[in-house]
Simulated scan of single mutants.
Amino acid sequence: MTHYGEIFSLPGEEIKKPEEIPGLALAYIGDTVWDLIIRRHLLAQNEMKPDRLHKRATAYVRAKAQADVAHHLLPELTEEERSVMRRGRNAKSGSVPKNADISEYRMATGFESLLGYLYLKNRHERILELAERSIAWLDERLSKERNGPA
């Protein structure tokens, strides 16, 4: 019996193979994966006030940031990963958040789809590898935005 995404799965729960799951459903779980990684990252920086945690997390999880990360990571992705990202990016959703344009939103959805896919394939090391690169890149960008160019 194969269990996909074994971390946090309840005994006896079976889901489809990640290859058979639609892009938006992969993005649904990938959004949570990214959110958890970012929350853990912020706690590791000793940020403990909930209002500041929320404000800082928003800079990482908003559609524009995720779309920028997706573009940044694209050259490093395998063909399989690019395909999953494309599948998520091209999925038609019913709505677009008011704070993102359609191209950013779709690219962010592709990024979330990739994380969801990797999570369900139990490729946690790959998720952390991509997250480490993404967060380092975002941290540098956010620092420049706060402090201005060096």
Rank of each mutant, 00 (worst) to 15 (best):
M1V: 09
M107P: 04
N46T: 10
R39Q: 14
E129L: 08
M1H: 06
L77W: 02
N147Q: 12
G148K: 01
H71M: 13
H41G: 08
W34L: 04
P22G: 03
A131V: 04
G94L: 11
E132C: 10
L115S: 06
A63H: 04
L115T: 07
E79L: 02
Y4H: 09
D101L: 06
Y60K: 09
W34C: 02
K92E: 02
A57W: 10
R52S: 14
N46Y: 07
A67L: 07
E112G: 03
E132T: 10
V84I: 05
G110C: 09
A65L: 10
I37T: 02
R52F: 15
R86Q: 03
G5K: 07
M107F: 14
K144L: 12
R40I: 11
S83I: 07
L128N: 15
A131N: 02
P22W: 00
L36T: 13
E20D: 14
N99Y: 03
E80S: 07
H54T: 08
R126F: 09
L42A: 11
S113M: 07
A25P: 07
L138K: 11
S9F: 08
S143H: 15
P22K: 05
L74Q: 15
I37A: 06
I38M: 07
R87L: 13
L36Q: 11
I135P: 14
I7R: 00
V84P: 02
L114S: 02
M1S: 00
L53N: 14
K64D: 02
S134P: 09
N99C: 04
H71C: 12
H124N: 01
G30A: 04
M85A: 04
E47R: 15
F8D: 04
R52C: 12
K92T: 03
K55I: 12
G30N: 05
V96C: 08
R87E: 12
M85S: 08
N99G: 02
G110M: 08
I37S: 04
S113W: 03
R62N: 13
Y28V: 09
E129A: 00
L53A: 08
G94I: 09
S113Y: 09
S95C: 06
I21M: 04
F8I: 10
H54V: 00
K92F: 00
M1D: 00
S9T: 14
Y119W: 05
K98R: 01
I21R: 13
M85C: 02
R133W: 05
L73G: 00
M48C: 10
E13W: 01
A91Y: 05
T109H: 05
K144P: 07
M48L: 14
G110I: 02
